[in-house]
Simulated assay, not measured.
Amino acid sequence: MKKKNIIIWAIVAIVVIIAGYFSFGGGQKKASGKTVTIGIMSGVKQEDAIWKTVAKTAKSKYNITLKFKKFTDYSQPNKALTNGDVDLNAFQHYAFLNAWNKANKTNIVAIGKTFITPIRLYSNKVKNVKDIPDGATIAVPNDATNESRALYLLKNAGLITLKNDTDLATIKTIAKNPKHLQIKELDASQTARSLSDVTAAVINTNYAQAAKIDYKSAIYVEPVNKDSEQWINVIAANKKDKNKQEYKEVVKAYQTEKTKQVIKKQYGTAEITAWDIKLK
Rank of each mutant, 00 (worst) to 15 (best):
I111H: 07
N164A: 14
F115S: 02
K176G: 02
Y152D: 01
I160D: 11
N177I: 03
G39M: 08
K176P: 06
A31K: 14
N107H: 11
A103F: 02
S189M: 13
G26H: 08
A49K: 15
S194R: 12
E271T: 14
Q92T: 04
G33C: 04
N204H: 03
T57H: 04
S217I: 06
A10W: 15
K2T: 11
T259L: 05
K184G: 13
A13V: 07
T53D: 15
G25V: 15
P178V: 03
S23W: 15
K113W: 02
K252D: 12
F96R: 07
E47Q: 15
H93A: 07
T199K: 00
I235N: 03
L151Y: 02
T269Q: 03
Y21V: 13
L97H: 09
K56R: 12
N238S: 11
A19C: 14
I235T: 00
V86W: 07
K130Y: 01
S194H: 07
R193I: 13
P178Y: 06
G158R: 12
L66M: 04
V250K: 05
L181W: 10
K264Y: 12
N98H: 04
V198Q: 10
V221E: 11
P178M: 10
K29N: 14
K70D: 06
D143S: 13
L195P: 03
Y152M: 07
D167A: 10
G112W: 02
N177Y: 09
N98S: 11
R149G: 04
A210R: 12
N225M: 05
I64E: 06
T166I: 06
K70Y: 07
A200G: 02
K240A: 14
I116L: 00
F96E: 00
A110S: 12
N206K: 13
T199Q: 05
D143P: 09
I119E: 09
T106K: 06
K130G: 04
I132H: 04
T53F: 10
